[in-house]
Simulated assay, not measured.
Amino acid sequence: MNWDQIEGKWHQLKGSAQQKWGKLTDDDLDRAEGNREKLVGVIQEKYGKTKEEAREEVDSWMKSAA
């Protein structure tokens, strides 16, 4: 699944993202809007990760969501 598909199915995938990153609220996920970089930023903010760490987690999650 690519990011265009994720953005299009974001409402269905928000639950999966919330399972992976339990600290993320519905508001956090709404703010991300299915956008990769926004999601990376929210994860960085909530978990205190580096941009690269958050990006790797998001990419790994994306592959499993496919």
Rank of each mutant, 00 (worst) to 15 (best):
K9W: 04
M62A: 15
D30I: 07
E37S: 11
S60I: 03
E45P: 01
W61T: 05
M62V: 14
A17C: 05
L29D: 06
K9V: 02
T50Q: 02
V42R: 15
E33K: 15
E33N: 09
G22T: 12
L29G: 09
E57N: 01
T50G: 05
L24C: 10
Q19D: 06
L29W: 07
G41P: 10
T25I: 04
K38Q: 08
W10A: 04
M1C: 14
L39E: 14
S16L: 14
L24D: 10
E57K: 01
E45G: 02
R36S: 09
D30E: 15
K9I: 00
E53P: 00
N2H: 13
K9R: 14
M1T: 13
E7S: 12
G8V: 01
I6E: 07
S16C: 05
G8P: 04
M1D: 12
G15P: 04
L39Q: 13
K49R: 11
D27S: 07
H11C: 01
G41F: 09
T50I: 01
E57I: 00
D27A: 15
A32K: 03
K20W: 06
A66I: 06
D26V: 13
E57A: 05
Q44H: 04
W21D: 08
R55W: 01
T50C: 03
S16N: 10
V58W: 09
W10S: 06
A17N: 03
G41C: 04
Q44Y: 08
K20F: 06
N2M: 03
G48P: 05
A66E: 15
W10K: 11
D4L: 00
S64M: 12
L13Q: 08
G15A: 04
D59K: 00
S64V: 13
D4Y: 04
K14M: 05
K63P: 03
N35I: 13
K38C: 07
K49P: 01
L29K: 07
L39C: 12
S60L: 00
M62T: 14
K51N: 11
R31G: 09
E53V: 00
A54Y: 11
Q5R: 11
Q19H: 06
W61S: 04
D28S: 13
E37D: 08
I43Y: 12
T25M: 09
I6F: 14
E53D: 13
V42M: 13
R55Y: 06
G34K: 06
E53K: 00
K23H: 09
S60K: 07
K49A: 06
L13R: 07
L39W: 10
Y47S: 01
Q19F: 02
K14Y: 00
Q44W: 09
L13M: 14
D59E: 15
R55P: 02
R31P: 01
N2I: 03
W3R: 09
W61C: 05
K46G: 05
M1P: 12
H11P: 00
E52V: 02
L39M: 11
A66C: 12
G15H: 01
D4V: 00
I43A: 08
G8A: 15
L13F: 11
E53A: 08
R36P: 09
A54M: 11
A17G: 05
L39S: 10
G48L: 08
W21C: 09
Q19N: 05
L13D: 06
A66D: 15
G22R: 13
S60M: 03
V58S: 13
E52I: 03
G15Q: 04
N35M: 10
E7F: 09
E37H: 08
G34Q: 08
N35G: 05
T50Y: 03
